[in-house]
């Protein structure tokens, strides 16, 4: 855990340095283009988080082991967090580049729908009744939600392609240093995700143990009151 924290911190500094100082300025878009590194990294990490939800959900339904449910829930929370980051950075970028916060850009739109899907997942985790039933229902959603992701993506692209596209600054010219900066940003965010996930799962474990101790106390209290 400690090593991971240090590694994430150091890599974070390197990634910032690469993105803001080393990477050359993009010719057309100028400085705002530097948001790109963190935007892409957030989006990547969000998808990784939801993939983990998907895999953990399948594992839960197959084994019924509680840890998979805890892992899925923790990862979904982080996935929603990184999706929010991707959306906010994307909107900021859009504002800086095109002067508009939200223009139904296909990739941002499908990210937004994805965000809604997993908000629904978190709501379900919070409001479902019964411990095991809740876990199973959430797992069902975690599976079906993820399988819908590519289909949502396709449909949104198709939807936008039917509208006349506003003329936009052309494709970004990727220079080698830009690629390096992007790579570092992605690696840093991924490590940060893993680190946070570990903490989140550990918190859930502690919560579990606390409940368990409370349960023992409850039984003990019941025994004592019967004796008295």
């Amino acid at each position: 855990m400690k090593i991971l924290a240090w590694l994430t911190g150091i890599l974070g500094v390197v990634a910032l340095y690469l993105a803001f100082i080393v990477a050359p300025e993009e010719a057309v878009m100028g400085p705002p283009q530097r948001i790109f590194y963190f935007h892409v990294a957030s989006a990547w990490t969000a998808y990784l988080g939801f993939l983990v939800v998907f895999v953990a959900s399948i594992a839960y339904l197959r084994t019924g082991a509680r840890k998979w449910d805890r892992l899925a829930f923790s990862s979904a929370e982080l996935g929603v967090f990184f999706t929010s980051m991707a959306l906010l950075s994307g909107m900021t970028w859009g504002r800086a580049a095109w002067g508009i916060w939200w223009d139904w850009e296909p990739r941002l739109t499908s990210t937004f729908i994805l965000w809604l899907v997993y908000i629904g997942y978190l709501f379900t985790q919070m409001t479902a009744e019964g411990d095991e039933k809740r876990a199973r229902i959430a797992a069902g959603l975690g599976i079906i939600g993820f399988l819908d992701v590519p289909i949502i993506h396709m449909s949104v692209r198709w939807w936008r392609s039917l509208h006349p596209e506003v003329v936009r600054p052309g494709k970004m010219q990727m220079e080698p240093m830009m690629g390096v900066a992007l790579l570092f940003a992605v690696v840093t965010f991924t490590l940060f995700y893993v680190y946070m996930l570990k903490w989140r799962v550990r918190t859930e474990d502690l919560r579990d143990r606390l409940f368990h101790l409370k349960e023992i106390m409850r039984q003990r209290g019941a025994a004592a009151s019967r004796r008295g």
């Binding site: 023992i216 039984q219 003990r220 025994a223 004592a224 004796r227």
Partner: peptide, 13 residues
């Protein structure tokens, strides 16, 4: 059962 329950509780303490 109550007595054994108590014994268990004391052990926990």
């Amino acid at each position: 059962d109550r007595e054994s329950g108590d014994a268990w509780a004391i052990q926990f303490r």
